[in-house]
Design a protein around this nucleic acid. Structure first.
Lengths: 242, 242
DNA sequence: CCGCATCCGATGTGATACTG
DNA sequence: CAGTATCACATCGGATGCGG
């Protein structure tokens, strides 16, 4: 493993830069510490996606970087590229391998940490439906879900619905409509964010244009099981002088 | 917030590059996604440290990058710089704020993920004692610790000992010797890694030069409570062609 | 269109040297 | 000891091109 094949071809940095420390965190960052890599994992946590879907979901990633990252992640065993079967052949999709999937607990914890400082209004930042798969997992509170078995459906205007299914203390989010949701909510991003964050009531959400169907009691359970809202955000800026 | 103060002073990129997405993961990476940042968190999880301690623990970080990262992390509220009190004044130490400390669950999960592919031999990679604070937290299995209340002490040759205290299903690692350890183990890095990974026995470790004191049964409990070893590492390389 | 590759300016990183 | 300063270079970001 100390030698690479074809060592003379262009010879441009064949070895990704590594921290080279015998430490689990350093090793993890060797694999997923580079820019965009964990966001690609986030995209694929919503299911297999094609190249253009990824570019669209990542919004501002340069095309060459996306191609490079996908190559790296495939070489590192995090993702697999696959051709779709019979009719839609020639279509390539990327999906998480088991190793890549096993990142989700760490990714969820990171998202949970980052969510604390997310304002309850999107404030110009885009919000895509499939990001909710991660967000709902991060928000899930198993204690509040004890004894509950029902599902919820959220739909951002113009996007595919997302469903969250609670089964006996366990919870799981995925793309697509729920079979028989206890509550179904549709509306624009800011209204859904505020509603699930608990800063506005269901009535207020409807007043803002949201469509809510189902049991009002189930809506309250959903807000306890999937609590949101910034946890007394310290309001620190990301920006600073160099 | 659209205008920065002092816009004319050197004017070099006052805004750190941000993903600018309404997503908890993207926000987390805005704060801790840049190179070296999470490793600095790792260093400080072992307690307050001075600049040169950090430079030493990070091993290969350029001095200017360390200074830059510390400035960024302080501006973002992750760490605080503090002068030591009375006698040793003029000594500056860095420590995690509550916000920085709250990263530990995510950091531990990332480390747990990365540890799977760490070989059971250090293979030339350095291993520092204070990294064990994170490693032991990542290895801790609460289920195996149920009903156990005792502490263990590990010491890498020539370094400060690290202790792990189990109290009724809960576990915590910190720098420094344990008060009354059920087991005390000292030895070189590869021996301690192999012993805690379960690939060699205590007898074999002693044969390799380790010093083990205490109850052999407690050593077995420790190996169950702090299990190690790569979880069928898929052996994928970090390196790949560009 | 989809799935990239190429080009290029701006920025970040790494190694070394230097300073209060 | 606790950082700055400098500089070569790798990487990133944005635009554009291009074969299938």
């Amino acid at each position: 493993m100390y030698f690479q094949s074809e060592p003379l071809i262009k010879s441009s940095t064949l070895v990704a830069r590594s921290y080279a420390q015998h430490c689990g965190l350093a090793r993890a960052l060797d694999f997923v510490g580079e820019r965009w890599t964990l966001l690609i994992v986030r995209e694929l946590m919503a299911g297999p996606r094609r190249y253009t879907d990824l570019a669209d979901g990542l919004m501002t990633i340069p095309s060459n970087l996306l191609a490079t990252r996908l190559r790296e992640m495939e070489a590192n065993g995090l993702i697999a590229r696959r051709r779709l079967p019979a009719p839609a052949s020639s279509v390539v999709v990327y999906e998480l391998t088991d190793d890549g999937e096993s990142l989700s607990t760490a990714v969820i914890e990171l998202a949970r940490w980052g969510m604390r400082t997310l304002p309850v209004t999107t404030g110009g930042r885009p919000l895509r439906a499939h990001w909710l798969v991660l967000a709902l997992h991060a928000r899930f509170d198993p204690r509040a879900a004890a004894g509950v078995s029902e599902s919820y459906e959220l739909q951002l205007d113009g996007e595919e619905p997302v469903s969250f299914e609670v089964t006996a203390g366990d919870g799981h989010a995925r793309m697509g409509p729920a079979a028989d949701p206890a509550v179904r909510i549709a509306g624009d991003a800011d209204t859904l964010v505020a509603l699930t964050a608990g800063t506005i009531s269901g009535l207020e959400a409807v007043h803002r244009g949201a469509r809510i169907e189902g049991d009002p009691a189930a809506l309250e359970r959903m807000r306890r099981i999937l609590p949101g809202g910034p946890i007394a955000a310290s309001g620190q800026p990301v920006a600073q002088a160099r």
